[in-house]
Amino acid sequence: MPETRYIKAVNQALADAMEADPTVFLIGEDIGAAGGSFKATRNLLEKFGPERVYDSPISEAAITGMAVGAALTGMRPVVEIMFMDFTTLSMDMLVNQAAKARSMFGGQGSVPMVLRTPHGGGLNAGPQHSQCLEAWFAHVPGLRVVCPSNPADAYGLLRAAIDDPDPVIVVENKALYAMKGDLPDAPEDRERIEIGKGRIVRPGRDATVVSYGAAVAMAETAAETMAEEGIEVEVIDLRSIQPWDESLVLESLTRTHNLVVAHEAVEAFGVGAEIVARMADIGFDQLDGPILRVGAPFAPSPFGKTLEDAYRPDANQIVAALRRTLA
């Protein structure tokens, strides 16, 4: 099983989906000849042609609107929005059209589209190119939201999203694009991952850390630090943010009795807040300490490297939260 970079796994998932289904096509800015800003669509124009790899004008609203219309007529468009920050320009089509179509048409129509977009910092791209806005979309009934943490999941979740009959937002942390991981050579051996199912990355008995995307690696590092002190931390990768694997988190909390939720997004009103509220409701009797969140401060992401490094959550903050809840 060869090592594959995260960005190559995304590219492979797109190619395999287009080979398998002629209704799948790609649309976005500079995704054709240029291969996308991060090269996720490299060589796909040459392989599938301009009718299936469509270089769009610079208009996120038009791109998403075209995808919604195409999906309603039986196509399976995959939209690339260059940075998650620019999904602000797609909100009407996503939130008022794509997310509502199945309900408004009484289940007689659906919007089987995917919107891929990178989020997060680490590249010193400044406050308009570094935001993590997944909580916005997770709040909207009718949208599904996934966030892979490794190459195999980047492949498996994207394939599942393209197969899904409803709109799915696939959030890719751009700091992970160079990450290497195993991905089988044969297409039939590459796993699709069920949307809504998380995984236990590292088993433990003393505390649970729930995370997704780039925060999973931070949680693993924190768990290794705590293991040096004899404290075994269970790390859960949600994979899917909406829906999220509530039962897996509750089962883990029942074993460990302590819970920390970590993500790169701003802590206030984030994904972590929903998980904390839900576990406080259904898992309160299992708690031995407070449920704590680790996230970015309530401020725009800085541009300068030292400031961004201080702004982004890290493993040390997760360790501090673990020590606090265990105390």
Rank of each mutant, 00 (worst) to 15 (best):
A175P: 06
T4L: 04
E251L: 13
R159L: 13
I282R: 09
D237Q: 12
M1H: 14
R323F: 04
G181D: 00
S130Q: 02
G198S: 04
P141M: 00
D314Q: 08
G156M: 00
N43G: 10
G35N: 01
V140K: 07
L292Y: 05
H119M: 10
A217N: 03
A299P: 05
E246D: 09
R144D: 06
S252F: 08
I162T: 14
I241Y: 03
A207K: 01
L94W: 08
N258L: 07
A33K: 08
L250M: 14
R192C: 02
V249W: 06
W244G: 03
D166W: 09
D30N: 07
W244V: 06
V233F: 06
A160Y: 00
R293L: 02
Q97Y: 11
E46W: 08
D237W: 15
I162D: 05
V276G: 15
A138N: 05
G156D: 00
F137C: 01
V146F: 02
Q242F: 08
G198R: 05
N150L: 04
V260A: 00
S149P: 11
D281E: 10
A152T: 12
P167R: 01
D185C: 15
D189S: 14
P184S: 02
V235P: 00
A299K: 03
I169C: 00
P50D: 11
T73Y: 13
D85K: 08
A99D: 02
V168N: 00
G272E: 09
G142E: 01
A273C: 12
P151Q: 08
L158K: 00
E51V: 10
I195K: 07
R324F: 10
P187Q: 01
D189V: 11
N43W: 10
T221W: 13
T73G: 14
T256Y: 07
V210I: 08
E29S: 13
P243K: 13
E172C: 08
Y54W: 12
Y54D: 07
S59H: 11
V233E: 09
A101E: 13
D153F: 09
M18C: 10
G109R: 15
A70R: 05
F298Q: 13
A299D: 02
E264S: 03
F86M: 13
V171A: 14
I195S: 07
G204D: 03
N173D: 12
L322H: 00
S301H: 03
I7H: 14
A299N: 02
T4K: 05
L94Y: 13
V53G: 04
L176N: 11
D309S: 01
F105N: 12
A327D: 15
C147R: 03
H119N: 15
G109P: 10
V319D: 05
R144Q: 04
P290T: 08
C132L: 01
Q108L: 02
I236L: 06
A161H: 06
H257F: 02
V170F: 05
K197L: 05
R190E: 07
F48I: 03
L115C: 07
L143F: 01
